[in-house]
């Protein structure tokens, strides 16, 4: 009963928030609505007994990603509207057809995959969700985990290199004087 109420409440809130993100003119409203939607999505994860994923969702999305967007938006002139001229109806029809096909495929998917078997069972006696994820992540998924770590390191370095140059200068234009005056 409570699951039913929680599911529908979170569904309506999430869909509403994401509709605001997509249809809002103001970038700041869109960003705030996106942060709210991320929090509500973590509610689904707690409903689905994936506590670790819910906590990670809150920390990574509404903590790190939204803060990054907020800092990134300081570089842009967000008060000036971007002129958005949509001049072909074809995109609209393509979108509707694609979405309809998507919904049909999703509805059929559980029928086709009904005989799936669990390789890593989610429940053991006296082992919680976080502990179980740790067990699986550090045994069977160790190499993808390390690769993800390397990928995050590369992303961090590229983010620093791309943004941290002098803000009013071009990236490649005054390479010469940088080389001469480099002290760091």
């Amino acid at each position: 009963m409570f699951e039913l109420i929680a599911f529908y409440t979170f569904s309506i809130l999430t869909i509403g928030m994401f509709c605001i993100v997509v249809f809002s003119k103001n970038a700041l409203y869109a960003m705030s609505a996106l942060a709210g939607g991320m929090i509500f999505i973590s509610g689904f994860f707690f409903l689905l007994e994936a506590e670790f994923l819910g906590v990670v969702q809150i920390i990574v999305y509404s903590g790190a990603v939204m803060a990054l967007y907020a800092f990134g938006m300081m570089f842009f002139d967000t008060t000036r509207d971007v002129k958005e001229n949509i001049n072909n109806k074809k995109i609209l029809y393509t979108l509707s057809i694609l979405s309809a096909i998507l919904i049909v495929v999703i509805l059929c998917a559980p029928i086709f995959s009904a005989n799936i078997e669990a390789i890593y069972p989610a429940k053991l006696e006296g082992v919680g969700n976080v502990q179980m994820i740790g067990l699986v992540l550090f045994t069977k998924y160790l190499i993808p985990f390390e690769l993800a770590a390397v990928m995050l390191l590369v992303a961090m370095i590229s983010g620093i290199v791309l943004v941290s140059k002098r803000m009013d200068a071009n990236l490649t234009e005054d390479e010469q004087e940088h080389i001469e005056g480099e002290t760091i």
Partner: peptide, 24 residues
């Protein structure tokens, strides 16, 4: 099955790095 949650975890990692590089 726990594989779905692990995969979602990796998707979150990919999303975070995508934001860092894309915003830069």
């Amino acid at each position: 099955d726990l594989s779905g949650q692990i995969f979602a975890f990796f998707i979150i990692a990919v999303a975070a790095s995508e934001v860092a590089v894309g915003l830069g």
